[in-house]
Design a protein around this nucleic acid. Sequence first.
DNA 1: GTGCACCCTTACGTTTACGTCAATTCTATA
DNA 2: TATAGAATTGACGTAAACGTAAGGGTGCAC
Lengths: 153, 153
Amino acid sequence: MKLVSPGEAAANTNDISDKAGEDLVRIGEMAKKYGVTLRTLRFYEDKGLLNPQRDGSTRLYTRRDKARLKLILLGRKVGFSLRDVKQMMDLYDPTGSNTKQLRLTLDKSEKQLARLQKQRALIDDAINELSNSMASVRQMLSERSAPQASVAR
Amino acid sequence: MKLVSPGEAAANTNDISDKAGEDLVRIGEMAKKYGVTLRTLRFYEDKGLLNPQRDGSTRLYTRRDKARLKLILLGRKVGFSLRDVKQMMDLYDPTGSNTKQLRLTLDKSEKQLARLQKQRALIDDAINELSNSMASVRQMLSERSAPQASVAR
DNA sequence: GTGCACCCTTACGTTTACGTCAATTCTATA
DNA sequence: TATAGAATTGACGTAAACGTAAGGGTGCAC
């Protein structure tokens, strides 16, 4: 069996998909394309976030998997746990209005936004405290090196 | 043997410290005073960050331990690891100018400050992305409930 | 036929700062 | 003296998202 050889995506006649443009991709290419490791892709699959087809034992990722991965990565970027991402994605139904999914997503998003803002406040706090103590340390250091030049020149 | 009974610190005649005002405190009081758990205090000791005296097997914290704990908690607050805090504290020498300690502290602080600022940027990023996607979700939700009221009223 | 380049599964390791028992001992007090 | 309230030393557990081998298979360019 032959897959799309790396570099060209023309005239593929594999028995998995006759619909042209299915654009199946193996794990290596997938990983490169999205800047993740193979381990990560397998891990996401293990957690039920991805579900690539198989050609024997080899994973084949479709357009759908790519869309899902993009969502996962966006979720991670904004600080959702994989568990949260899964919950939201699990509610997706291509045949419905997805109102429930959207509501859950919005709900989780509001909470996450609040967490992020709190974190931001904590970091600002830390930055201030740290800046202050750095000023003290600089002060102490200068007091230890200045004396000889106190009435300098 | 008798310790300062909880609530009064007068006329203590224990054989550990004759100097009045040594103000020895047991782990429970120490924990309450600084808002940490007993486990935390023992953990810090295990990591070499604290070194309370002993009365038999009972830990007795002195003024010095309190000062160190304050430093630890400040360090944690600004995001230093316990390892970092230890490194800095280990350089403290009550008989010297502590120039080396201060320099190390300043150095670590600069790096930590940079980390905090990077984190802040990441969080700001996340907040923006999340806000954007929330807007999209709201949009989609409104499109699913609006149709009946598209030319409402 | 062999050396790569990829792919697979299984499974333990990593990081940090504690949490959470468990079993025991001390001691102050009613 | 019985009991409740501190303290002690182990020592395993936790969380999250992968990292990192180990051991093995497949196809293909030379």
